[in-house]
Design a protein around this nucleic acid. Structure first.
Lengths: 345, 345
DNA sequence: TATATTCACGAAACCGTTTTCGTTACAACG
DNA sequence: CGTTGTAACGAAAACGGTTTCGTGAATATA
């Protein structure tokens, strides 16, 4: 912090500290003339008020926390852009916390948020997160309930505002699209049984199978993990089994590469031998080989809306309806990985 | 902030505030017995010290700022992971600021850092950033020089620690690889003439041409912008001109997609008709059509090293050698986009 | 025994703002 | 003329920690 503080300003102007403070905040108590003098000198000396002194006194930090499992994912990186966008507009600062998909880290991070460091929290839970006590503790703090908004990866059984996509419907549509393309043995690559969005997507998947009179069997849902090597093996096992599927839906972006790689290695052609859809915001989907049909979420907008919701909750302190639930539609972008074309290469 | 503060603790324990504070910080002044009592109650009441009160008094925020132009770029997202990794280890908090490639935002953000909010700054400059006064102002603040470390996109003419890659050499190597593959008319797609790394890469490119007795002409370096539509048009113009190049080097990841798309649209086959290399950390490079030869930076490690350097500077306050310059090697990963194979598809 | 030292803790200043609550001077008002 | 009101500012108490300095008791030293 620079040596010039409000005290130095006051001394130079021969005013009291309080007067300077009020002048800078354009208080009605201060004459126009004095305000001008104060502001002029403040600008000349490049005065920058200490944010922590202010936070301490006002019990307001103008800072929010963004708690996410990962940043190298096109959904999250786009969502962060949306969040930053409205945060900058609102004059808020953004603390970024990565949980690296670890529940313990998430717990610790949230715990550290309970001391006034942030005015609110935006989060997408870890794939390991099962219980919600660490979250509900924040909300039910008798003295200081801290506003929290889920985006994308929300938790059930807890009364929290959230911004998500229509996971059931979009998964249903993706599945239907595969069925329409001729698939009869579709495998859904699941992220984590703990994730609500994952389960909604599985539900949509199963419902589509049901409505098309296709049986859902054990092997139709495969649980992937956070271990890339394990996932690769699992996918390899599925795609080289006797009962090889003719359609794949990946519930998360990081499963795209292993599917493509395994297909390439095993000589399985997409889409003639197997069709593939992934939930993903990857801007490179159009230039993959073949281009990838995706369920694409409006990530940027989701970030914006979640942040907007949070700021509303912060400002209205308590009066906010906790059950607000914004659902934005994802779009099925059809490309060649589910196309009907034969083997061209 | 929760209602339990250090005062409440002190009252409950029948101790003075100062004693409780010292006990929690494991001061030698406090008896083991008292420390135990204090810590036990603190844990029981879930006491969480107010960070801003502490920051105010200690003039230390335990927070750093990460100022970058963009997050939806695989280099930056990986670098952030590295930064978060060591920040969490060191007990620091990370404020994320996106400049959206806008110089004005960068300036404003840095200005806001000059009030004690952060103990240090990690940054990659905007493609618009020309002068360095907004940066040198931070460093030469008579009273409070705030440590800053560049990573990747550094600025010249200013004495700042930095972590970069061997841009000249890797660009040289990439160019040489294209020449070895038979290219004689290579175009370098430049990010921004303002960026130091970009100019180093161009220099390496030109040097390679020179050493191979190839002339560098005007059209061999094409300036792209931050406008996607403009870039697309420019690339389209280049690839459909009479003097169509037989090799392309893209200086930044975001130019990959337009090159592929234009080639596809114009029916130009990679690599038989044109060969393509991009600077990029894209994990999807192997599954593009064709797989993309890349110059890949050790992004995660760069984030780690930059953060480590910054923390060292923060701790040693002043005694740090400002000219420390860590250069990590990028690697040329050869894939099919520069391969010799003919048209197979 | 007188003095020095160590131990364990309390009192209070301090960090830089914000905000409440005076206080003064002056105008308005009956 | 006494009262009220208002405009413009100052004094001081917060906010919740940290840190310096003091202080009394116990122990060691001469």
């Amino acid at each position: 912090m620079s040596e010039i503080n409000i005290r130095a300003l006051a001394k130079a102007l021969n005013l009291s500290i309080g007067t300077v403070s009020k002048a800078l905040k354009d208080s009605y108590e201060i004459s126009a003339e004095t305000k001008e003098r104060v502001i002029a000198l403040a600008k000349a000396l490049n005065y920058n008020p200490n944010p922590y002194a202010s936070s301490l006194r006002r019990k307001k930090s103008n800072t929010i926390a963004v708690v996410i499992p990962e940043v190298a994912d096109s959904f999250f990186s786009a969502a962060i852009k949306g969040i930053e966008d409205v945060a900058q507009l609102k004059g808020y600062h953004v603390l970024l916390y990565l949980t690296f998909e670890q529940y313990e880290k998430e717990k610790k991070i949230l715990q550290e948020c309970r001391n006034g460091r942030v005015d609110g929290i935006l989060m997408s839970v870890t794939s390991e997160t099962i219980d919600t006590v660490h979250i509900s503790e924040l909300l039910t703090d008798t003295d200081n309930p801290i506003p929290l908004v889920f985006f994308d990866r929300a938790m059930d059984g807890i009364n929290v505002q959230r911004v998500t996509t229509n996971d059931f419907e979009s998964s249903f549509a993706a599945t239907q699209h595969l069925i329409d393309a001729g698939c009869r043995n579709i495998v859904y690559l699941s992220v984590s049984k703990n994730l609500h969005i994952n389960n909604k997507r599985i539900a949509g998947f199963k419902q589509a199978l049901l409505q098309n009179h296709l049986k859902t069997e054990e092997h139709n849902v495969a649980d992937c993990s956070n271990d890339g090597a394990y996932n690769h093996q699992l996918i390899n096992k599925i795609l080289t089994s006797n009962n090889r599927p003719d359609g794949i839906i990946a519930g998360v972006e990081k499963l795209i590469a292993p599917v493509y790689v395994v297909c390439q290695q095993a000589g399985i052609h997409i889409p003639s031998q197997i069709k593939f859809i992934s939930f993903s915001n990857l801007p490179y989907a159009p230039i993959l080989n073949p281009s990838l049909t995706t369920v694409t979420q409006p990530a940027f907008e989701m970030g914006q809306q979640a942040a907007t919701l949070l700021f509303k909750a912060i400002e209205k302190k308590g009066s906010s309806a906790m059950d607000e639930h914004i659902i934005l539609p994802a779009t099925l972008v059809i490309r060649n990985s589910t196309g009907m074309e034969g083997r061209l290469d």
